[in-house]
Structure formats: C-alpha cells, structure tokens
Computed example of a mutant assay.
Amino acid sequence: MDFYQMKCVLTVAKHHSVSKAAEELCVTPPSLSQQIKKAEDELGVKLFVRSTHDIWPSEAGNEFIKRAQKIFAELSKMNDIMNNYASGTIGHLVIGCVPVMKESGLLHFIKLFTERYPHISLEFYEAECFDLYPLLYSGKIDVLISTAADPEKPKKIKLKSYPLAEDELVLVTSKKHRFANRGIIKLKETAKEPFISFSPSSSLFRVTVDACRRSGFMPVSSCRTHNFDTALGLVAANGGVAIVPLKKVTHTKWKNISIHRLSPKISRTLYLVFLRSGIAKINPIVENFEQFMAQCHLNLHFDEYN
C-alpha cells in the first residue's frame, strides 16, 4: 500500500463521506472509491462499513487508522526536521579562524548567532591564515575568518570576503630598549633591529615584511616563533622587537614591554571569507551565517575576488 492510499483512507474516515473526502483530495468520488477498494483488496479486509448515507470504519479499519495516523505524524515530524536542515536552522558549522577571536570582539557576534540558531552546533578550527585556505577549498571548514587574501589561490576558486574589523599594528620593545620612552617610531628606524618574527603562513609575517620593504629594508629575524606569548616573552627579555596587532598586545599584560605606534601607520583587516556562489550548492547554514554577519555590519560590503 502506498502513502496516497493511506491518505485516502484517513480522509474518508475523517469525513465519514466519500464525496466530502473526494472534494478535499481534489479527485472524483469514483476515483476515491477505487483507491479505497484497492487498499481493502491489498490488505484482505474491509476497512469501512457503508450505510445508505454514511461510511464508517470497521473494527479492522479503526486499527488501521490508528496506526496510519502515527505513521503520518512521524512523517510530518520528519518533514519538519528535513525542512530545518534545508533552511539551515539545524546542523553543524565549522569555522576556520586565525587566533584573534577574543581581542577582535567577534565572540560577541558568535554568541548572538548561537542564540538566534540554537540548534546549530559550532566547531572552531584555529590555525595560521594561509594554512586555513586549503581547508576552505576542500570543504573541511565551511567559513574562514582571515586577515589576508590568499596569494596562491587556484584560479578556478571564487571567493567572497566580508570585512569585519580593522586593527592597527604596533611595534613592541623591551622597556630596556633604546626606543622604550618614545611614543611613535618611524618604521625605517628599526632597519638594524633584530626582529622576533612569526610563522610565514601567518598574515602578520607577510604584513611586516611588506611594510619594511616599503620603508626601504628587509627585517632581519633573530628568532621565529608560532606562539604569540613566546614572541612577547622574547621581546620582554630584550631579545628583539616585534610588530604585533594593538588589540592583541593590549589583551596581554606584560610588565617589561613598551608599545609604540608606527609611522607610517600599518593596519590589518579581519575578513570573513566564503566560497562564492556557483561553485557548488551553498550550505544553507553558511548562508544564514553570512546573512547574520551582514546584518551585524550593515555599513560594510562584500568584496569578491577571482
């Protein structure tokens, strides 16, 4: 027996009338009667007892109706759940992010998103900027919070980026350093300073190198680390200088570190990055996340790059 025949039986039982049931189902009474007969022939029992004016379920019909109603209720529940998945209100979202979530203020918006979509679970994959892009291309992460565009992006990949926040980069030195009591430092003055540098896969490394090049020199690394606290510890010990985000260094309290603004000013933008429409079917949860973040930042606009 198919679901349509089951629906026919339930509709006739609801109205106690073939003609009224046929009107609801938008079929002719003879066609509906034929479906009821097919169901009865297949089951080998009479589902209805007919009188001159009405039609009533038989004992077997009552049992059938009780179980069919449970099936349709479960089917309706299943459809609702599937609709939730299709509309992106239930499921799982993997966010790849550079380690700036706390100081950027984005955690507040993430919290608001989880309140609006309580049935979406979030997973964060934290790594350096250029280590995350391949994970986005392969689908291992759904969205990316990044501080730079990927210079090695395959041509076939199309991305949509959305600016979220901007941070100024500053020079940090030991309080024993010759710059310690100065507020603003010209970047070219640091040409002979030993730099504490970060991973080449981080945007901070590339921003630092590019800024120094524009000021006429290449920074010389005395030490390289993947860890921000390690870098600040080396700076505090007067092992070198470093260029770091202002928001991040002010969230970390170090007694022996001086913070200096740079001239010319160096800034870094934090982006939300998605695979652009047309490459594959867009995950509806990603669409909801994109729209939510757009509502939080209505004064900014998406940038698309090939």
Rank of each mutant, 00 (worst) to 15 (best):
P99V: 05
D131P: 08
L246G: 04
I196C: 00
K265Y: 00
F302Q: 12
L298V: 06
G233L: 03
I279D: 00
G91P: 04
S104V: 08
S121M: 07
T89Y: 08
N181C: 06
K46P: 02
T89N: 11
A237S: 14
D150T: 04
E74Y: 14
E23K: 15
E123T: 15
H260Q: 02
K186D: 11
G216L: 04
L164S: 09
N84P: 09
S17K: 09
S202A: 13
V235E: 10
L270C: 05
S203N: 03
S161W: 07
S138I: 12
F289M: 03
L204M: 08
C26P: 00
V207P: 01
A165Q: 14
K186P: 00
K66Q: 14
I185S: 04
E287Q: 08
H16L: 09
L232I: 10
F179S: 01
T208P: 02
K188C: 02
G139D: 02
E24K: 07
I145Y: 05
I259Y: 00
L43E: 11
V172G: 02
A21Y: 05
D80Q: 15
R206G: 02
P151H: 02
N299F: 12
S221M: 05
W254G: 07
I65P: 01
R213T: 07
S174I: 11
E304T: 10
V235G: 11
N283T: 00
R50N: 06
Y117E: 04
L298E: 15
I184T: 06
V220D: 06
H119M: 11
C26V: 08
Y162D: 05
T190L: 07
W56A: 13
S121C: 04
F289K: 03
F72G: 07
I65S: 01
I266P: 03
I243P: 10
M6G: 15
D210A: 11
S76G: 14
Y4H: 12
K248C: 11
S203D: 03
L300W: 11
A242N: 07
I36V: 11
V209K: 03
S58V: 07
E128T: 12
E126N: 11
P151Q: 06
G216H: 03
L112I: 12
N62H: 11
R178A: 13
A39N: 07
V27Q: 12
A242E: 09
G278I: 00
T114N: 09
V49Y: 08
K175A: 09
M78V: 12
V235Q: 07
T230G: 04
H16P: 03
L171N: 10
H301D: 10
V249C: 10
P284I: 05
K247Q: 12
V241Y: 14
V273T: 09
L10W: 08
G278P: 00
N84H: 13
I184R: 04
E287G: 01
G233E: 06
L246M: 14
C212V: 00
A294G: 09
N283I: 00
P30T: 03
Y271R: 07
S215K: 03
V49I: 14
E59D: 12
P57I: 06
I110H: 12
I279W: 00
C212I: 02
R50W: 06
H15D: 08
L300R: 15
R178E: 12
H301R: 14
D210N: 12
H226M: 10
V12H: 08
T230N: 10
Y4F: 10
L122R: 09
E42D: 12
